[in-house]
Structures are given as C-alpha cells and as structure tokens.
C-alpha cells in the first residue's frame, strides 16, 4: 500500500467551490443509485435466479397442463379456454414476485444493515429524492428482467397450449406481467423503507402479499371477494396479466392494476415522509 507523504506534498490554500459549478440534478441521483445497484453481486444473482427459476416453473406447469389436457374436468377446461394467458403466467409470477420483493427489500433495507444509509442521507440531506431515485432505478431494472421472463414464458406456454386452446396475442398481459411485478416490488421497497430491517421487511412483505389475501379470500360473502380483489398480491392486481375473461373476475384488468398501483403509490409516499422525518439510525456510540 502506498501512502502519500504528507511532508513532501506542498501545502496549497483551500479555495471555496466555484459558484458556477454544475449543481447535482435528479438524474445524477439516478446514476448514483444505478451504480449502487449494479455494484453489489447479489443484484445480478437474484435477477438471474428469478429469470431461470420462474421460466422453469412456467415450463413445467404448462407442459403438465398440455399433457393432462384429456383428463381435465370440464370446469378446469372452461377456465383454460377463457384465460390461457393468465394460466401461463400464474406459476412464473407466483415465484417471481417473491424474488422481486426480496430484491426490492435488499435495495433499501440492505443500506440500513450495512450502515450505507448514513452516507446516503449525508449526501442527500433532503432525503425524499433517495426514495424516488431508488424506486425509479429498481422499476427499470425489474421491468427489463421480468419482461425477459414474460416473453420467454409466453412463447413456451403458447407452444404447449396452442394445440388445445387459442392463446391470444394481446400485448397487455405480456407487459402486464412486468407491470404487476414492478408494482408489487415498489410496494415492498416502500415497506422496507419504513421497517429498515432486511429479514423483518421480507417477512412482512411476504405475509402481506401472499398470506393475507389468501386468508382473506376465505372470509364469508363479499368480504372474501374484497380481500382477494383489492389487497396487494390478490387476484385483482394479477388481472393485468390475464385475458380478463376468467370466470368470477369482478374487476377489469386495468381496474385491478389501478388498485395495486394505488397501494404502491400510497406506500411510497408514506416511505418518503417517514424517511424525511426520522433520524438516521445512530452510530453505536450515540445512545
């Protein structure tokens, strides 16, 4: 390790910053957050695992469906005919949403566990732009990765199922797959900003988007329907990646997605406000 020899270097007088120096803009913060995301190995591996595993799951599921076609009940067959796209995407989405939520939680709660958040908040003392920039970078990265899955899964599913049903060529479900996943991911990112803890946030997010809508759907009468339709992670939000024709659908794809988006936006606003108001986690000696 070489060290600058302090005695040898000449002392120069410090000069104040030139007031005409360019001021940082929001795009500079986006660049910084992009650097943060791409320079930890876990990002790449989490995304690769998401792409491989969700595609593999969809492959197996559609292959099984196609091979069992003749033994399906009339009810199941009617469902498949009404919404083949939804059934192609379902297995991939149920895994991918977990991977995407973990990635989202890591992007922000990971900063708390490593102490990087103190550096971040000292660099951006207004704070809320941090949430905005992180959400923006996450959304773009997650959308690209999930659309790779969406296209692969769609082509696979179509190849297996087209002998039996007509798989539509509508772009909405294919884009909807990515939209659903980044929106549920943004909800997770916002929650992690409030909870500031990796394991706690992952547990809370998975409970909220998987357990709660499932349990809720067993509620009697209308309540069960509301729970599965309007809670994040419920069937309503997933309508965006379906044909919209499945029996029992109570909202249109865009309505269902709108409700999910509203959840994500509300959570992000809460996250920005919480981050701006709260003290940064103190160093060990401060308490």
């Amino acid at each position: 390790m070489t060290t600058m020899n302090l005695e040898q270097a000449p002392v120069r007088t410090w000069l104040p910053p030139d007031p005409t120096d360019p001021r940082p803009r929001f795009v500079d913060l986006l660049a910084a957050e992009w650097t943060k995301m791409r320079t930890v190995r876990s990002t790449f591996w989490a995304l690769l695992a998401m792409v491989v595993i969700s595609t593999a799951l969809a492959w197996v599921a559609t292959a099984v469906m196609a091979s069992q076609w003749d033994t399906l009940s009339a009810e199941d067959r009617a469902y498949l005919v009404a919404d083949p796209v939804g059934l192609i995407f379902q297995p991939a989405a149920s895994y991918a949403q977990i991977a995407i939520c973990v990635l989202a939680v890591m992007a922000i709660a990971g900063e708390y566990s490593t102490g990087t958040m103190r550096t971040t908040l000292a660099a951006v003392p207004r704070r809320w732009p941090v949430v905005a920039a992180k959400a923006g970078v996450f959304a773009v990265v997650a959308f690209v990765a999930t659309e790779i899955v969406a296209i692969g899964v769609y082509l696979l599913g179509r190849a297996y199922l087209s002998p039996h049903v007509e798989v539509g060529t509508d772009l909405r479900p294919i884009l909807g797959f990515g939209l659903y996943l980044i929106t549920i991911g943004l909800f997770a990112l916002a929650l992690a900003t409030v909870l500031r803890h990796v394991a706690g946030s992952i547990t809370a997010v998975l409970a909220l988007i998987i357990v709660v809508p499932n349990v809720g759907s067993f509620l009697p009468g209308k309540w069960g329907e509301y729970a599965s339709t309007y809670l994040p992670g419920g069937d309503g939000g997933q309508m965006i990646m379906s044909s919209g024709q499945n029996p029992g659908a109570v909202v249109t794809p865009w309505q269902g997605y709108g409700v999910l988006l509203a959840w994500a936006v509300a959570a992000l606003v809460l996250a920005a406000v919480t981050l701006a108001r709260r003290s940064a986690p103190p160093s060990r000696s401060a308490i």
């Binding site: 910084a32 650097t35 971040t120 660099a123």
Partner: peptide, 23 residues
C-alpha cells in the same frame, strides 16, 4: 464513527456513487 460502507462494494464503486450523487 460507525461503519458506513457496503462490504460487498469495491472502494472505487463506493466513491463513484457518492461522486455521482454530488455531480
């Protein structure tokens, strides 16, 4: 006083994102 660098990131990249955030 407390640790404030991500252990998985290189020194260069830690300083790079900080520099970018300040333009």
């Amino acid at each position: 006083e407390a640790r404030s660098v991500h252990p998985g990131r290189s020194a260069y990249h830690h300083l790079l994102w900080l520099a970018q955030s300040q333009r």
